[in-house]
Design a protein around this nucleic acid. Sequence first.
RNA 1: GGAGAGAUGGCUGAGUGGCCGAAAGCGCCGGAUUGCUAAUCCGGUCUAGUGCGUUAAGCGCUAGCGGGGGUUCGAAUCCCCCUCUCUCCGCCA
Length: 422
Amino acid sequence: MLDLQFICENRELIEANCRNRGVAVDVAAIVALRDRRSELIQQEDGLRHEQKEASSLIPKTKDAAEKQRLIARGKELREQISRAEADRKQAEDELRALQATVPNLSHPDAPIGGEDASRTIRTWGEPKSFDFKPLDHVELAAKHDLIDFEAGARVAGSGFYFLKNEAALLELALVQYAAHKAIAKGFVLHTTPDVARDEVLHGIGFSPRGPEAQTYSIADSELSLVATAEITLGGSLKDEVLDVAKLPIRMAGISHCFRTEAGAAGRATRGIYRVHQFTKVELFAFAAPNLESSNALHADIVALEEEIFQGLSIPYRVIDTATGDLGGPAYRKFDLEAWMPGRGEYGEVTSASNCTDYQARRLGIRCKSPDRKGTEFVHTLNGTAVAVTRALIAILENYQQADGSIVLPEALRGWIGKDRIG
RNA sequence: GGAGAGAUGGCUGAGUGGCCGAAAGCGCCGGAUUGCUAAUCCGGUCUAGUGCGUUAAGCGCUAGCGGGGGUUCGAAUCCCCCUCUCUCCGCCA
């Protein structure tokens, strides 16, 4: 969510940014509602002031008739106030709903346009050329009994799976590997709840309920299964006021991720590329509220993601995501796309966003600086250390051999206890 | 799951209907004093909304005592619901 005053004072900027992001927002309606809200607040505050005065006179008043008159006046004011309050609340609800539709500002260097406009800013490693026809991860998994899709479907439906044998060990190894990489860079490792309050999901930018919900909600509760530990890590400091000297705060979180993938039918559904549940190590950071700090931290997060994939010797490219594809909260987003021989193309394996103060404002996460009055909303950033299913695809497909066996990345062997599958 | 006790400012902790945004202490900031340090003394020290002010300093008003509702002219204080914490019992990986 953006600051209301900022929106109203920078209409052209906001409108242009919404156009770049392909989002339709009625800024004029926001301004009008803001003005209406101000009027209602003034009216309400005036009534309250009068009421306070009247009631403070009552205990001092000796004259019985005068006292009765003041009490009657107080009653009258109470009713007026409750009406004024209802009006104000309604205007505020409408305003907040509209305000929430305004996406974050965009980094001036982010490419403008839809998904096609996204720019490759660098590539690492060469897509491996095989002197045989490479199999995709589904075929490889079948060959080595690594993934049971049928069992997943039987137990939980399409989109769920069981990892078996070395694949299960690979999940543990990848989590260990990524967690240690993150720890080495100062991220404090957490395991987090796999559920969160809808309010927290909303603060991070997910729609937990309703037709466009991307998450599973738990019946008869205000809880949803988390789609990423970004939700729980970001929510962990909800409504807190932090000391700016303690920033940045770096966290890593291991969680399961649950996604309904509503509307994704038919898109890359083969195998474990797009599933309803996977395990992920997520990076999250709270930065001081200025772009110098958060942009620098953003670069650090991307560098760590790259280090993780370089350590696995998997070729990848880094994408500077176009404005139209940023989603609401991100100011700028870099994705790592790993080479996936089975698909014959790059596939997204990580995503790192600088959300500036957009999430923090809705979550109420602020910081206090000694040299200025009041508080400011912190900047938040998130990135993927490793998303197990996507990384697994890249490993199985890149490390396959002519004889059908799969060599394991050196970095993971210690945790798996062997150097190849098959 | 059952029984009980709690939730007040950065912290500790008073306050059980109006004079309370809230005593006191601690902490923190500024100043005084002081060979240095310590100690002592004085002053200051929450957040948000809103209005005036030049998008300033600042001043005013309103709100906030876990959250939400209610009673009342008036609620930190009384009532109801919820959440969370602690203690005991039960259950359990």
